[in-house]
Structures are given as C-alpha cells and as structure tokens.
Design a protein around this nucleic acid. Sequence first.
DNA 1: CGCTGGCACTCGGCCCCTGGGAGTGCTAAG
DNA 2: CTTAGCACTCCCAGGGGCCGAGTGCCAGCG
Lengths: 346, 346
Amino acid sequence: MEPTLSARDRSIFAAVVEEFVQTAEPVGSRQLTKRYGLGVSPATVRNVMADLEDLGFLAQPHTSAGRQPTERGYRYYVDHLMQAEPVGPTERQQLRQRLGPPEGAGIEELLAATCQALSVLAHQVGIAVAPRFEARVFRHIDFVRLRGSLVLVVLVSQSGVVHHRPVEAPEVEDQRDLDQMANYLNGLLVGLPLSRVRERILAEMASERALYDRLVQSALELGQRALGGARGEEGLYCGDPTPLLDQPEFSTAARMKELFEAFEKKGLLLRLLDQAAAAHGTRVIIGEEQGGLGLRGCSVVSTTYGCQGRVLGSLGVIGPTRMPYPRMVGLVEYTGRLLGEMMDHL
Amino acid sequence: MEPTLSARDRSIFAAVVEEFVQTAEPVGSRQLTKRYGLGVSPATVRNVMADLEDLGFLAQPHTSAGRQPTERGYRYYVDHLMQAEPVGPTERQQLRQRLGPPEGAGIEELLAATCQALSVLAHQVGIAVAPRFEARVFRHIDFVRLRGSLVLVVLVSQSGVVHHRPVEAPEVEDQRDLDQMANYLNGLLVGLPLSRVRERILAEMASERALYDRLVQSALELGQRALGGARGEEGLYCGDPTPLLDQPEFSTAARMKELFEAFEKKGLLLRLLDQAAAAHGTRVIIGEEQGGLGLRGCSVVSTTYGCQGRVLGSLGVIGPTRMPYPRMVGLVEYTGRLLGEMMDHL
DNA sequence: CGCTGGCACTCGGCCCCTGGGAGTGCTAAG
DNA sequence: CTTAGCACTCCCAGGGGCCGAGTGCCAGCG
C-alpha cells in the first residue's frame, strides 16, 4: 500500500510538510529550495512535487498555487518520516510547575491542570479523561441521609475519585442503619475493581446471610442501585480552547463556530479518547480518520497514562491537522509520563 | 437625572428598541411608521428621533443611517418602559421537562440542566451558581485513607453537594481511627452552617476534651485543614454558548474570539453572579455596566433562586445587549422559581 | 537519462470605481 | 405642530483591471 520514496523525495516531502506547518501557506518550489538547502533547483522540486501529488501526498488548493500536504500525506509523514521531539528544559520545568502543587489537589484538579498546561504549551486544546469507571478500584462507600427518603450515596475509589448520587431509599429510616449498611458493604467490597463489584453483590444477595438479615439485604440493594447509571460526559477534562482561535484555519467565523459546536459534544470526544485509552501508547488521528466527529480539519495526538504499569486513562491535544506533530507527540508523551508520576505520588 | 418623555416619545422609543432587537439593523423612520401604526408621518418620527438622540437614548452608527438604542437607552427601556413577559405554556412545559427527571440527579446535575435549558430556550448562554460554600449546612464528613499518609476528606452538605479533597494526615494510621474521628466531628457539627463550622472547631480545640484526647485533637485539626482553601471557579455552571454565535453581533471572527476568551474567565462571571445573589431579586446589567468583564456588547439578566425563602444562589442569561429584555426577564424569573421548587422537592 | 533554466499561462487577491438604495436634515407649506 | 418634498450623505455590492506567485512544459546541458 505505502509506496517507497527515494531519499530525495522524502526530504523534499518532509520539507514541504514542515514549511507548511510553519507558515500555513501553500509551499512553492522556489521558496522551498531557498529556505531548505536541498541542493537541487526549483524545477526539480517541481517535478518531485508533481510525483508526490500523483501519490496523493500533496495537493494544491487551486491551479497555480503552491502545494500543501493532504491528510494521507500527513499520515505518511507521521508514520515514516518524523521522530518525536524531546521536550526542552524550559518546558519541562513549566509543566512540572503547573502540575506541581498537590496542595489539597485531588485527581480532578490534577487532570484539569494537565489539560490547561497542554493547552498553553501546545497552543492547542489539551484534553484528558479520568480513569474509567470500571477500571477503578473500590475503596469506600458511604450513605448519607439528606431529607425524607433521599439518601446520598458517596463512592470513593482507590485513586481518590469521588462519585456521588442521590437515591431514594424509603425502606431505611435511621442514619445509624445506613452507617451499618455502609460498613458492611465496605468490608465486602474493598479492593475490588468496580467492574466486579456488581457480580459480587449479586452473589452475596443469594447467600444465606442476605436472606435472613433485612439490613444486609437493603445494603446490597442500595449498593446495586448506587452503581447503576452510566456516566455521561463525566471524566472528560478539556483545556482552554481559545489558543486554537489564533490558528489561521479558524480565522473565519464559520470555522470557529463549527469548532465550538464540535467541542460542545463532549460525548464524542470522550469516546474518541476512551478508545485511545484501550490501546496503550501514543496515537495520532489525522483529520477525517476520526470519523464524523465534526472536528473537520483537526487532528488528535493522544497517549495513555497510568501508574505502576497499569493504564488508567488517556490525554492528548486537539488541534488543526496542520500541527507540528513531532513536537506534539513529544509533548504529549512527556506530559503523560509526568502525569503518571504525579499520580504515583498522590 | 432621567428626563421625562411624552407618551408619544415613549411609544416611538419603545418601537425603535423592539424593532432593533428584532432585526439588528438600524431603524429608519419610514420603516417604523409602516410596521408600527404610530399614526404620525416619518418626518415627525425623524424629529422625535433626533430629540431622543440628543438625550443619548439613540445613536446612528454613521450619518444617514437609521438609529439604534444606546446602552443608556436600553437602561431607560428596561427601567421604565418594558414589562416582564409571561412565559408561554409550551416553554413552561419544556422547562419542566428539562429540569424534570430527578432520577439519580443531584444538585449539580440540576443546575447544569437549568443552564442548558436556559441556553436553548433563550438562544443565549444560561449560567447559574450553586449555593455558596458558606451558605451551606454541614451534614456529614468522612475520612478515607487512600495510600500512605494521604487521606481523602469527603464533605456533604445538607442539600447534597459533595466536596472533597485529599489531605496529608501522617499522624493517623488506622482507618478505624479515621472513622471514629469522622463520627466525632459529625456529632459536633451536624446542622451547622459551614460559615460557622470553623469557629466551632476552634472553640472545641480549646476545650478539655481536645487537650487530653489525641484522637479528638487530630480530628479537629484534620477538619480544619479540610475546610481551608477557597475553591476558585467551583460552583459556576454554564450552558452551551454556541447559540450566541448565531447572533449577528458575533458573526465576525474577532468578536467571536473575544466572546470565548471572556467566557474562559470563569472567575469574573462567578463574581458577577455572586454579587447578584447578594441582592435578592432580578437584575439587568447592560453593556459596560459590568465593568471590565471583557463581555463587550453583552448584557446579563439574572435573578436569585432559593428554597423556603432563603436565597441560595443565582442564575441568568448572558447575551448581546440587543436582546429581548421582556422575554428574558420573564424567562429567567420563571426558571428561577422553578429551580427553587425543584430544590424543595430534592 | 536526469537535472536545470526559461517561458508562457493560470489564477486568486487587491484596489479602485461606480451605481443603487436607504435614510437623514432642512425648509416651506398646511 | 405636523407633513411633504428635496438635496445630500454614506454604505455596500458588483465589476474590471492589475500584480504576483506559482505551475507545467520544453529544450538544452552534463
């Protein structure tokens, strides 16, 4: 499928990509030979460019304009030509500082800070997803009577993520009973991955103990109800999108509007990143590859983070397809490692 | 300060405002007499308009264009000419439906749904602030050991808002001790407004009991630490801002960018609404009256909500200064009442 | 055989100009 | 005080022409 290019073709192609990424203008042959010491004449470059266009790697927005990479071209560049760029010391320091102060900061704040840092450093939109619900480990449950028969269920995972929802529990009157129920469930479930909590509850429900102890029975029922219900957009963090507005691809009102409308659909973003989290490692999604996400002309660079070897979630940046991929990959990967490190400490 | 206008002046002025709000185009004298049966000729209208311009209520964007209201003009209109428009039955139903399903929904979800509903119905941006931290009532505290000396403090208020943060607590080793400490604090603080929790803890610290019981002492210290640290933007909810993009005032890229940059400054929005919450009742802030908020050309209509007579927070809409104020005031007030009602039920 | 210089051609962007339309202010008459 | 008429102003959209950047192709050279 992928054609093989000569060394010269590749260096010219890489030059076109890099020049275009920098200037956002179609790249002409003359300009290219001037700025990159390619050692060949513009005419030669033109011939090569014509070949690259035939291959579908370059395109011209209109006749008699320079060339710019196609999405397929970026894909080739990302897969075969580029190398992740190491993050400079200044930026490392900035990142550490931004993610740094764990003063009263939980995972949520850490993830939000990470997105924000990515937004600023990348001049794109940083995004991150919290550890998936099912991947978390049960740590603690609590029932708090609010009013009437309304009980607030508070669920804490091992990593410190708190989840809560109100539930109707008309059968239990006393807060002390609720405390006992929570106690019982805590003993039963602590250390279990949330994905297996449900089956454990079901198993327990069938046991003798549940059949004879009304309180145990209520506890199990309440626990089950508390776990139900998928989280919609929960767990998605998104940095400040305004740096994107400085990119020329979003300089028109129509494109800007499209962009923001796409960003409102958090569910789609979440799915995109969640799916990236399944894979372990860095992914680059270029333009239309995302499918009908509405992020026309955008790419996503994402990677996974985790601690102690386990993948917890993913993070990345979204920006125009014309982005400095080597820098972005380097930045996202470094940030991912840093985030994992922070979580280890947390 | 406010000049008195004749009945005719007022009806012409109101017509100009309403026409401009609808069309977003400067209003001419001929057009006005045609669409509103004013019973006078265009020339008369021109004379009146010239007077209104002298008063600072109208302005023309350039010579030989129609007139549009100034911010001062809107202020006069809002204060003296308009009446809140009752919300139609269809919209009432829509609102109820959107705020309706309390299925596993806490206050957070309710507020988010409210903003979203306002955004959609008003074609502007709905915003809301949750009950202020200090106004809430202590209901429950819990300490959960996460790892090492890290303890997660979970704080539940009477209305079901959950607040949590990790805290270092090297002095307590055992989860059972933590439970006891939480128990003790719960007994001590339940039903107290959060604003008075701190003093209560300080008072207790000086008591005999604290001096001799290590656990009690730790509990009080931990409780104090858990309450410290103001949260920046927490409690602000914001609906989908994209409907605003359809308004002609934001049709240019530059204005759009300004708008989104202003919306990123959540702190400013929060302050604006918080300050509105202090007053009890509906407020209309027109254009520059907000001060350097960066929301140039925008107005805010806000009101307070609460249950059982107490003001809990505020909500409102942000939109272009050229907005249908009667409708907005009606909508925001109705939504505020509805929200209070929902919270009563919750 | 591949590279290079030259040349004609193409096309988008910018500036200028012009005509049309909407609206005003002024004045004089009812 | 109101109204009709009129001259004036100004914005805006559309058309034409110029300029520059860049291409494709061809012939010549190493």
